[in-house]
Simulated assay, not measured.
Amino acid sequence: MTDRATARAAKTALAGQLSTQPGVVGIGLARRDSGYVVKVDVADAAAAGLVPRDVDGVRVVTEVVGVIRPLRSRTA
């Protein structure tokens, strides 16, 4: 079981490692079983291959979510 503080520290370390990697669109924390994991959202399967399976003993899960784009304003 990984506590929130440990997972948060691993997230910070991983964000530094992946900050320049193309295709990584989000990094956060998620609850799994009775603890926390670092969750990495990626644009495609190729980007998923850049993400390690764990960081500092904390499990990392990836999910292919596609490209993230900002919503366009609908103001007229």
Rank of each mutant, 00 (worst) to 15 (best):
M1F: 09
D3C: 10
D3F: 02
R4G: 00
R4N: 03
A5M: 06
A5S: 15
A5E: 14
T6I: 10
T6Y: 00
T6F: 04
T6M: 06
A7L: 15
A7H: 12
A9W: 03
A10D: 01
K11W: 02
T12H: 09
T12W: 02
A13N: 12
L14S: 04
A15N: 11
A15I: 05
Q17N: 00
S19N: 13
S19Y: 00
T20H: 09
T20D: 14
Q21I: 14
P22W: 03
G23W: 02
G23L: 03
V25Y: 13
V25A: 02
G26I: 07
G26N: 06
I27W: 12
R31T: 13
R31P: 04
S34R: 13
Y36L: 14
Y36R: 09
V37H: 06
V40A: 00
D41A: 14
A43L: 11
A43E: 13
A45K: 07
A46G: 03
A48N: 09
A48F: 07
G49D: 06
L50H: 09
V51G: 11
R53F: 06
R53P: 08
G57S: 11
V58A: 09
V58Q: 07
V58M: 08
V60Q: 05
V61C: 12
E63P: 07
E63F: 08
E63K: 10
V64Q: 01
V64T: 12
V65S: 01
V67G: 00
R69S: 09
R69I: 07
P70T: 10
R72W: 02
R72H: 03
S73T: 11
T75S: 06
